[in-house]
Amino acid sequence: RKEMTAACTPRRRIINLTSVLSLQEEINEQGHEVLREMLHNHSFVGCVNPQWALAQHQTKLYLLNTTKLSEELFYQILIYDFANFGVLRLSEPAPLFDLAMLALDSPESGWTEEDGPKEGLAEYIVEFLKKKAEMLADYFSLEIDEEGNLIGLPLLIDNYVPPLEGLPIFILRLATEVNWDEEKECFESLSKECAMFYSIRKQYISEESTLSGQQSEVPGSIPNSWKWTVEHIVYKALRSHILPPKHFTEDGNILQLANLPDLYKVFERC
């Protein structure tokens, strides 16, 4: 597991931080080997919608929660590849102030007048994250320049770009939802926020969305749709870069829909 690298990086740093090793061990302890084997050997059937997909393993048909699986995938990559990410360069710098204002204007932020003026909160978020810029760049390849612009994001899987519609809320939550006081809790909560931002979430995906850094293989055609990215990038990574937690067998994120021999018997009677 320590050699797990989802995106190509030129050289690998050895990380011996106790906090990170502890988080890696927790993933191992909570892992479910049968689910790992199923995901490793599954045959992708198709997307139901951005949140759900169908896959077959041996004779069984499964309904998989793409949102939760991708979130767990990105969390584990962030923990196992800690401080070893490439950088996704933004085509132009994104001012943190503008991103924070967009987030505060969104109902998702939960902002009320009692929280104070949005401009003041946005300025605080910019200054707060600028103070964390060195650590964010060093460990997470999340790059913020001296003017308070976001200029780079971590490359977690080759050819995958997170849904940038979720970027404003991500920046807001970096400042408000991460435990910045304790090292282990900081790395864990920061990785979880980043994983949620990178995950496939239906509120940020339309039929026209593209999450891939590449064009489709047909010359002159439109960019790959999110469905292509889910199948050929995300579920491909799920084959080798995730140890599913045991609770996925109990919380409805992986559901067995049918045993195909039983279905064949039904059709034979028709």
Rank of each mutant, 00 (worst) to 15 (best):
R1L: 15
K2R: 10
T5R: 03
T5A: 06
A6N: 06
A7D: 07
C8K: 11
C8L: 12
C8W: 08
T9I: 13
T9S: 07
P10D: 09
P10W: 07
R11E: 10
R11Y: 10
R12Y: 13
R12M: 11
R12T: 15
R13Q: 06
R13A: 05
I14V: 11
I15V: 15
N16I: 08
N16A: 07
L17F: 12
L17K: 06
T18Q: 07
T18W: 12
T18V: 06
T18A: 08
V20H: 03
L21D: 04
L21R: 08
L21N: 08
S22I: 15
L23K: 02
Q24D: 02
Q24Y: 05
E25N: 07
E25A: 07
E26P: 02
I27N: 03
N28S: 09
N28P: 04
E29G: 10
E29C: 07
Q30N: 15
G31H: 13
H32I: 06
H32M: 08
E33Q: 13
L35K: 02
E37M: 07
M38G: 03
L39W: 02
L39Q: 00
H40D: 07
N41Y: 10
H42Y: 03
V45K: 07
V45E: 04
G46E: 12
C47Q: 03
V48C: 15
P50V: 14
Q51W: 01
Q51S: 07
W52Q: 02
L54R: 01
A55W: 02
Q56F: 06
Q56L: 12
H57G: 05
Q58N: 07
Q58R: 06
Q58S: 14
Q58M: 14
Q58V: 09
K60L: 11
K60G: 08
L61H: 04
N65A: 00
T66F: 02
T67F: 03
T67Y: 03
T67N: 05
K68E: 09
K68Q: 10
K68N: 08
L69F: 05
E71A: 07
E71S: 07
E72W: 03
Y75H: 05
Q76A: 00
Q76S: 02
I77W: 01
I77T: 06
I77A: 04
I79R: 01
I79Q: 02
A83Q: 05
A83R: 04
A83S: 06
N84E: 04
N84G: 04
N84A: 03
N84P: 01
F85E: 03
F85R: 03
G86E: 15
V87P: 15
V87N: 09
L88E: 05
L88D: 05
L88M: 15
R89L: 14
L90G: 00
S91I: 12
E92C: 14
P93V: 12
A94E: 15
P95Q: 15
P95E: 06
P95V: 09
L96S: 03
D98R: 07
D98N: 13
L99I: 10
L99V: 11
L99D: 00
L99Q: 13
A100H: 02
M101N: 08
L102W: 10
L102C: 13
L102Y: 10
A103R: 02
L104D: 00
D105V: 10
S106P: 04
S106K: 14
P107G: 13
E108I: 11
E108M: 12
S109Y: 11
G110C: 15
G110V: 11
W111K: 07
W111L: 06
W111E: 04
T112C: 15
T112S: 13
E114V: 08
G116Y: 11
G116T: 06
K118W: 03
E119I: 12
G120T: 14
G120N: 08
E123D: 11
Y124D: 13
I125M: 06
I125C: 11
I125R: 02
V126G: 15
F128E: 07
L129V: 07
K130E: 12
K130A: 13
K131C: 10
K131I: 15
K132E: 05
E134Q: 07
M135I: 05
L136F: 04
L136W: 02
D138S: 05
D138Q: 04
Y139V: 03
F140Y: 10
F140H: 02
E143M: 06
E143H: 10
I144H: 00
E146K: 11
E146L: 14
E147G: 12
G148F: 04
L150Q: 01
I151R: 08
L153W: 01
L153N: 02
P154K: 02
L155T: 13
L155S: 10
L156N: 00
L156V: 05
D158I: 13
D158H: 12
D158F: 06
N159Y: 05
N159S: 14
V161S: 15
V161E: 14
P162Q: 00
P162L: 01
P162A: 03
L164K: 09
E165S: 10
G166D: 05
G166R: 03
L167M: 11
L167N: 01
P168H: 05
P168Y: 03
P168M: 02
I169G: 12
R173W: 01
L174C: 07
L174N: 01
L174F: 00
L174R: 00
T176F: 13
T176K: 12
E177T: 06
E177V: 09
V178N: 00
N179H: 11
N179S: 12
D181L: 12
D181H: 13
E183W: 02
E183S: 04
K184Y: 10
E185M: 11
E185Y: 09
E185Q: 12
E185H: 08
F187L: 08
E188C: 14
E188H: 12
E188G: 09
K192E: 05
K192G: 05
K192I: 05
E193F: 05
E193D: 02
E193Y: 04
C194K: 02
M196C: 14
F197H: 03
Y198H: 04
S199M: 02
Q203G: 13
Y204M: 06
S206A: 11
L211V: 15
L211I: 11
S212Y: 14
G213K: 11
Q214H: 08
Q214T: 11
Q214M: 11
Q215V: 15
S216A: 13
S216R: 14
S216Y: 10
E217V: 08
V218C: 15
S221G: 15
S221P: 14
S221V: 15
I222H: 14
I222F: 12
S225R: 14
W228T: 07
W228R: 11
W228S: 06
T229I: 10
I233D: 04
I233K: 08
V234Y: 00
V234C: 03
Y235E: 00
K236L: 03
L238Y: 02
L238A: 08
S240K: 15
S240A: 13
H241P: 02
H241W: 09
I242E: 01
I242D: 01
I242V: 11
P245E: 01
K246M: 09
F248K: 01
T249H: 11
E250A: 08
D251M: 05
N253G: 10
N253R: 06
I254N: 01
Q256P: 11
N259V: 06
L260E: 09
P261K: 12
D262H: 15
Y264F: 12
Y264P: 15
K265E: 14
K265C: 08
K265S: 11
V266G: 15
E268T: 08
R269S: 11
R269F: 04
C270V: 14
C270P: 12
